[in-house]
Design a protein around this nucleic acid. Structure first.
Lengths: 225, 225
DNA sequence: CTATAAAATGACTGTTGGTCAGTAAGTGAC
DNA sequence: GTCACTTACTGACCAACAGTCATTTTATAG
C-alpha cells in the first residue's frame, strides 16, 4: 500500500506549512523580532516540532531563501521560452528581477541575509544552502546565455567576454534593485538627494540605456530609441 | 578650572574606547555572535557601563557605522582637492570606495546592516542614525558634483541629468562592491560561474569602461585607452 | 575631612533559541 | 479489538544574552 508515499507527502506538506507560517511572521516583523514560538503558533504546531523539520532558525530562514530563489529562477527561465534577441533578454531579466523584488521584498531580505552569512562550515554542510547556491549560479548562467545569444544574433558587441560582462551586469542590476528596495523599505523617509525624489521606476531603464550604449551594437540599440 | 572640559574629553575617550572594543569583537565574530559582556570585557569595563554610553546594542553598532562612513567620506572629499576632470573624479570615487570596502569589510557589513533596519521610528529618533544618513547623502552629493564638473569640463555628456546619473552610478558601484565583498567573505568557496574565478580586481575597471562608453564624451574616454 | 555629584558595577530579570524526556497518534499483525 | 512497535508531536526546561537598576566606588569642591 502507498502508506509510505502518503507519509512522505504529508511530511512535505507540514514542512511547507511551517515555511508559510515563517514567511508570514518574518516578512511582517523582520527576522530578529520573529520568534520561533510565534511561528509555531501560526503553523498550529508546538515549538519543538519546528526543530524536527529544521535544524534551527537560520535554516528555516534559508528554506525561505530557497523558496524565493526557486520562484525567481522559474520566472527567469520562462523568459527564454519567448522569441527574443540577446539584448532583449538582458532587459527582460533585469525587469523581471526588479519586479520580483518589488513584489516580494521579504524574499529579497532573505537573499540579503543569506549573502551575509559567513560561517562557511555551516553553509557547506547545509543541503538547503547548496540549493540556494545552485540557484544563484543558475541565474548567472542564464545571464551568460543571454549575452551569448546576443553576440550570436548581433545585438551585443562581440568584443566582450560574456562571463565577465554577465557578472558586471548582474552586480549592477542588484545594486540598483537594492537602492530601490531600501528606499521602499524605509518608506521613502530618507531621501538620497536633496530636492529630488528619485524615480525608482525609471532607474533600471536609465541604467540600461547608459550601459546599452557601451554594450549593445547599433542594431541592439535601435529598440531603445 | 577646566575640570568640566577634561570630563567631557574623558567621556569622549571612553566612548571611543568602547567603539574600539566593539569593532574588535564584532568585526571578528559578527554581530550576532558578539556579546555585550565580551565587548565590555575587551573595553575593560562592565556591561552596565556600556549602556551609559549607548542606548542598546544596535545603537553601538550604528556608532560603528557612523565612524566608518565618516572615514569613507573623508577619503571621498579628499579626492576633490586634487586636479581632476569630472570623469576622473568618478573613477577615483569608485576606486576609493572599492578599496575602502576591501580594506574594511567590517565597516561594509555595518553599512549593510544599517541599510537593512526598518524601524523608521527608532531611526528618526536616533541622533547617530541622522548622522549616518547625512553621510550617505553627502557621498551622493559628491558624485553629483563630480558629474557636474564633468559636464562643465566636457568629459561627460551633457545629455544626462547629473542627479539621476549619480544615483545609477552609485548604485551600480555598490552592487559591484557587494559582489566583491561577499565573495571575499565566503572565502571564495562558492563560485559565481563554473570554471571561472571572476577577477574581482578588474570588475570595476571593466564596469567603468562599459559605462564609460555611454557616459563619457570622446574626450572623457581618451583616458581609458 | 566631609558632603555631594558622577561614574561604574554586577546581580538580577525577562525573553528567546534550542533540547529532550515523555505523550499521543498511527500502523500492521493477529 | 488489542497488542507491540514506530513515528510524530509536545511543552517544561535550560542556557545564553540583552537590558535594568539598586548599590558601591570614585572624583570634586568647599
Amino acid at each position: 500500500m502507498g502508506t509510505t508515499e502518503r507519509k512522505k507527502r504529508e511530511k512535505r506538506q507540514r514542512r511547507d506549512t511551517i515555511i508559510d507560517a515563517a514567511e508570514k511572521i518574518i516578512f511582517s516583523k523582520g527576522l530578529d523580532q520573529a520568534t520561533m514560538t510565534e511561528i509555531a503558533k501560526e503553523a498550529e504546531l508546538s515549538k519543538g516540532t519546528l526543530y524536527l523539520y529544521f535544524k534551527n532558525k537560520n535554516e528555516l530562514y534559508m528554506a525561505i531563501t530557497k523558496r524565493g530563489s526557486n520562484i525567481l529562477n522559474q520566472k527567469l527561465v520562462k523568459i527564454f521560452s519567448g522569441d527574443h534577441t540577446g539584448i532583449e533578454l538582458i532587459r527582460l531579466m533585469g525587469e523581471t528581477y526588479l519586479t520580483f523584488v518589488r513584489d516580494n521584498p521579504g524574499y529579497f531580505n532573505a537573499f540579503l541575509h543569506y549573502d551575509s552569512l559567513r560561517d562557511t562550515e555551516d553553509l557547506q554542510n547545509s543541503e538547503i544552502a547548496q540549493i540556494c547556491e545552485g540557484n544563484k549560479q543558475e541565474a548567472m548562467a542564464l545571464m551568460v546565455r543571454a549575452l551569448q545569444i546576443g553576440i550570436q544574433d548581433g545585438t551585443i558587441k562581440s568584443s566582450y567576454n560574456p562571463k565577465e560582462l554577465a557578472v558586471i551586469i548582474w552586480a549592477s542590476t542588484r545594486g540598483i534593485t537594492m537602492i530601490n528596495h531600501t528606499m521602499r523599505q524605509t518608506d521613502h523617509h530618507f531621501k538620497m538627494i536633496e530636492d529630488m525624489e528619485v524615480n525608482t521606476d525609471s532607474m533600471f531603464e536609465n541604467f540600461l540605456n547608459l550601459v546599452g550604449e557601451g554594450m549593445a551594437t547599433k542594431k541592439g540599440q535601435k529598440k531603445y530609441d
